[in-house]
Design a protein around this nucleic acid. Structure first.
Length: 234
DNA sequence: GTCCAGGGCCGTT
DNA sequence: AACGGCCATGGA
């Protein structure tokens, strides 16, 4: 029997619990009167093909210099920015990418993220994708976690799990995203969806780190019964 | 020392 | 359309 996304969600939730995800330092932004959504935008770019522990070091450096806000990123020298985000790797291109999106938000939306997010979902997505350095996963992470929009994020973990179980999704980013959005939306209200998509993505990340690693650890995996890859190994 | 991580771009086939 | 090389650091 082939597992469906809603069952997948149920099983993972039962195993790992409910998650409030994408780590943000709310306290920092309260005290500095800055927008926590911008930290999510920065994190989404810094974590491109990079371990989150390295991203945290970069975010800490930015906070120490009071630079984790849109205005500061626009103002500082690129070289200075490179130095601060160095621990996150690929620091030259990431510095440029941070500059690109920050200047974009400044020039077109007057540093006002409400104005940016409060528009047609697919329109915002297209705009993000048109920026150099923002691909589908980064765009959708920003839309879901910063913009609170109902859109499902597909990452390398999601692709790996879909292939192994397998799920009948196809292999392209848009195909997988549509598959999940189509097959999981029925059981939830529109208001619940962004929360559900966020939880599911978080659960997939946990599953991939604990069990569905590149070198799989199928022992005790909650999806063992449904996964043909696991059966193949045993 | 080797492998890998919450991608995306660009050039080549 | 699909694939390979490239970008870079730090933890396991």
């Amino acid at each position: 029997m082939r597992i469906k996304p809603d069952v997948l969600y149920e099983i993972l939730q039962k195993q790992f619990g409910n998650l409030r995800w994408w780590p943000v330092d709310r306290k920092y932004h309260r005290e500095n009167n800055s927008d926590p959504r911008f930290e999510i935008i920065v994190g989404a770019i810094l974590t491109q093909n990079t371990a989150w522990s390295n991203v945290e070091k970069a975010l800490t450096n930015l906070k120490l210099k009071n630079s984790l806000n849109l205005e500061s990123i626009c103002a500082i020298e690129t070289k200075e920015l490179e130095k601060m985000i160095k621990p996150s790797g690929f620091f030259k291109q990431k510095a440029k990418r941070l500059k690109t999106i920050s200047n974009y938000l400044k020039n077109n939306y007057s540093n006002n993220l409400d104005r940016f997010f409060n528009r047609n979902l697919l329109g915002i997505r297209q705009e993000l994708l048109s920026l150099n350095g923002i691909g589908p996963e980064t765009a959708d992470s920003i839309l879901l976690y910063a913009g609170n929009k109902p859109i499902f994020v597909v990452d390398a973990y999601t692709k790996r799990i879909c292939q192994r179980i397998p799920l009948d999704t196809g292999n392209l980013y848009d195909e997988i995203q549509k598959y999940f959005q189509k097959n999981i939306s029925n059981n939830f209200t529109k208001e619940e969806l962004s929360k559900v998509y966020g939880d599911l993505h978080a659960l997939i990340v946990i599953l991939a780190k604990e069990h569905c690693r590149k070198k799989p650890n199928c022992f005790d995996c909650p999806l063992k019964e449904y996964c043909s890859f696991s059966k193949l190994l045993s």
